[in-house]
């Protein structure tokens, strides 16, 4: 009676350890992929945040051509699959002699795509700010850009922290497409390790998932923290 559960648990332990070796033996390779995914995410997130906010400013500006250009960009990019954006950047730009490393290309493609998403998140946040706020700012003599920067955007951002978090989370997952375009990040590394360890596919893939979870959950935590700080009443 006593022997049976022990045996089973031993068997289970064997199963787990032998497979996890495929991960533990390759931790340095995993770290390499993790760092690449992190770098892709960070570079693209920062550029998309800056450009997307600028694009949102264009879309709410009083100058019609700027509004049209902003709308055209957002509608074009948002309705194009990310893979096609990658194709365009990685294989079309070199034909007009625009050549960078594949890492830079991947950051560019991710930025182009997520700029449109950031723009829409910020724009909906801007529209959520009472029109009287901008009116009061203009009445004080603030310029359009000062009005946006000092009054509207700070209030818009507290409305868009959560939507921007979703864009960021999508961005982290979308970095995996770079694996198909010359960048060895988490997904590429996982593919490589599953080939090298065909018996431990599940363990390798689970480790990959854990890495993505670490990134997305950290982001979710940061978003929650930011939101709490923004809504906290000073003194």
């Amino acid at each position: 009676m006593a022997g049976r559960p022990e045996q089973r648990s031993e068997h289970r332990a064997d199963y787990g350890w032998s497979h996890i070796d495929a991960v533990l033996d390759n931790l340095d390779i995993f770290r390499e992929g993790f760092v690449q995914t992190l770098r892709l995410s960070l570079f693209a997130a920062v550029s998309a945040l800056i450009l997307g906010t600028g694009l949102a400013a264009m879309r709410v500006s009083p100058v019609p051509p700027l509004r049209w250009a902003g709308t055209a960009y957002v509608e074009t990019v948002r309705n194009t699959p990310l893979t096609i954006v990658f194709f365009f950047v990685v294989f079309v730009l070199p034909q007009v002699d625009i050549v960078f490393s594949y890492f830079t290309f991947a950051v560019m493609a991710l930025t182009i795509y997520h700029t449109a998403l950031v723009c829409e998140a910020v724009r909906s946040g801007v529209n959520g700010v009472d029109a009287g706020q901008a009116e009061a700012a203009r009445a004080l003599g603030l310029t359009f850009s000062q009005t946006l920067r000092l009054v509207v955007l700070p209030q818009a951002f507290r409305n868009v922290v959560q939507p921007l978090g979703s864009v960021g989370s999508a961005l982290i997952r979308n970095t995996s497409i770079a694996a198909a375009f010359g960048v060895q990040e988490l997904t590429g590394i996982s593919q490589r390790l599953t080939t090298a360890n065909p018996g431990d596919v599940v363990a390798v893939l689970l480790a990959g998932i854990v890495c993505y979870l670490v990134l997305t959950l950290s982001l979710a935590w940061a978003v929650g923290l930011t939101e709490r700080r923004l809504t906290r009443t000073p003194r």
Partner: peptide, 16 residues
């Protein structure tokens, strides 16, 4: 506009 003060019905103080 900087030389003209304006007071609104709904105050419009900067909420943040």
């Amino acid at each position: 506009r900087a030389q003209v003060g304006m007071v609104f019905q709904s105050f419009n103080l900067f909420a943040h």
